[in-house]
């Protein structure tokens, strides 16, 4: 059970949060211009890294804000937490 430092509320138990999959996947601005393959890339393709992975998390039972997390999937170490729209920290 993680201890997550919500950028708006501070440290809270993982129970209050919801994981939202891979971060930094931007919804295409002009979906109609995309081929099926390009659209499928956005829609379905997700990384599953052993190591540092960038993820979206939502403080669902708190401030309800979305934010990003850099997490090492091999040991669940949370390397960094940063707000939506911010760049991931250098590794």
């Amino acid at each position: 059970m993680f201890l997550i430092n919500c950028p708006y509320c501070g440290e809270r138990d993982q129970q209050e949060f919801k994981a939202g999959g891979e971060a930094h996947i931007e919804r295409p601005k002009q979906p109609t211009e995309l081929s099926d393959d390009q659209w499928a890339e956005y829609l379905f393709m997700r990384k599953n890294i052993k190591g540092v992975q960038f993820e979206r998390w939502n403080h669902a039972h708190g401030c309800r804000k979305w934010f990003n997390m850099a997490r090492d999937t091999s040991n669940d170490e949370i390397k960094a937490i940063y707000k939506m729209g911010e760049k991931p920290p250098p590794q």
Binding site: K18, R27, N58, A60, K65, W66, M84, G85
Partner: peptide, 13 residues
Amino acid sequence: LSKLEDYLQTEWP
């Protein structure tokens, strides 16, 4: 509600 909030916060701020 969660889905709408997600889009508002992350895609269309």
